[in-house]
């Protein structure tokens, strides 16, 4: 659906050239929710703007739905943009228009007749859950409601692709989740391809199928969300993964524990996919005559399945411990011994 080949964007500044996007190749499939994560300044904002040519790439090709975006005439580009909508961190609604009029805006641009606009706006207001707010002005809405208007407006022209520019970064955690749920809903209902950029791993974890990690203009790591969670290779990716899998205090807690109770083994179990739901610990205790002490754990859901980490202390005889470890290694969990007394 979306294909980027060797895309570069170089800005000329007083301090010389800045490579905002440096030789990026991406392939995004139809119907996929694709996340691009990076810290601010990584080039993700520029990259997402290259997709709809709000920024022209310095070199490389961008193909969306078979169209080479950088070669389109300005008229063809405007038509193509009606199929590639965008939502924004700060919503970018027109304050002078009501909710209804804001949603009608792209339809006016596309030249729909009045009666058709009215009908479509009604549908969209229902779709994003803004019934009864049609006559309000943006200044009378909460952040979450404003983003719902932004989403309705973006969906008005029945686009094939939705670009989300930090769409939840200005919202509180609860509102973020409700907006993310809405994005998943429209992704499934409308078979819409969604490309989003964010600096929050939570967003990637919750709704993305695949993820690309950006650093200094480059994509340093890319793949299925669950695989990236399982085997992050780059240090930056490991940092992002930690944002959602380990509570910040984990390391300290474990260290503290080891210094106080240095007996047995401290093991970190990492569950990927289906195994996270199974009663592994029960089995361990029953079959292998060991004592298990659960120190800390967290299971998170991703679009490709659950992912979790569990820190446990295992105590028992040497042979029981060896057999227990053998068992753990045989099941589909990653085992890492952190401390061995």
């Amino acid at each position: 659906m979306i294909n980027l080949q060797a895309v570069r964007k170089v800005f000329q500044t007083k301090d010389g050239e800045v490579k905002a996007v440096d030789t990026v190749d991406l392939n995004i499939k139809q119907g996929e929710i694709y996340g691009i994560i990076g810290y601010s300044g990584a080039g993700k904002s520029t990259l997402i703007r290259i997709l709809n040519m709000l920024e022209r790439p310095t070199s490389g090709t961008v193909t969306i739905g078979g169209k080479n975006m950088s070669e389109l005439s300005s008229k063809k580009l405007r038509e193509a943009r009606q199929e590639i909508s965008m939502i924004f961190q700060h919503f970018n609604l027109l304050w002078s228009r009501t909710v209804r009029e804001n949603i009608a805006f792209p339809l006016e641009i596309a030249g729909y007749p009045k009666a058709k606009i009215k009908q479509r706006v009604d549908e969209l207001i229902d779709l994003v859950g803004l019934e009864g707010r049609g006559g309000s002005y943006p200044s009378q809405l909460s952040g979450g409601q404003k983003q719902r208007v932004g989403i309705a407006r973006a969906l008005a022209n029945e686009p094939k692709v939705l670009l989300c520019d930090e769409a939840t970064s200005a919202l509180d955690p609860k509102t973020t989740d409700s907006i993310l749920d809405l994005l998943v809903e429209i992704n499934q209902k409308l078979d819409l391809t969604i490309v989003l950029i964010t600096h929050e791993m939570h967003v990637i974890r919750k709704i993305c199928h695949r993820v690309a990690v950006m650093e200094q203009g480059r994509v340093v790591e890319e793949g299925d969300v669950l695989n990236v969670f399982k085997n992050p290779t780059e240090p930056i990716t490991k940092d992002f993964v930690k944002q959602v899998t380990e509570p910040e205090e984990t390391v300290d807690t474990i260290k503290q524990f080891i210094s106080e109770f240095p007996e047995g083994r401290i093991v970190q179990l990492t569950f990927i996919g289906g195994r996270a739901g199974q009663p592994l610990i029960t089995e361990l205790i029953r079959k292998y005559e060991v004592d298990v002490n659960i120190l800390q754990g967290k299971i998170t859901q991703t679009q490709n399945g659950p992912y979790g980490t569990l820190f446990i202390q295992i105590k028992g005889t040497e042979s029981a411990l060896a057999r227990a470890m053998e068992f753990l290694n045989s099941v589909q969990v990653e085992v890492e011994v952190i401390h061995n007394a």
Binding site: L77, R97, F105, E108, I109, R153
Partner: peptide, 26 residues
């Protein structure tokens, strides 16, 4: 707000539409 102009561009608005539907009303 520059973002509003960017939003209109991202919807495929012509310059005339940006002037009469965004710049002047806003």
């Amino acid at each position: 707000n520059k973002g509003v102009i960017e939003a209109a561009k991202s919807m495929g608005a012509t310059n005339a539409q940006i002037i009469f539907k965004v710049l002047i009303p806003e």
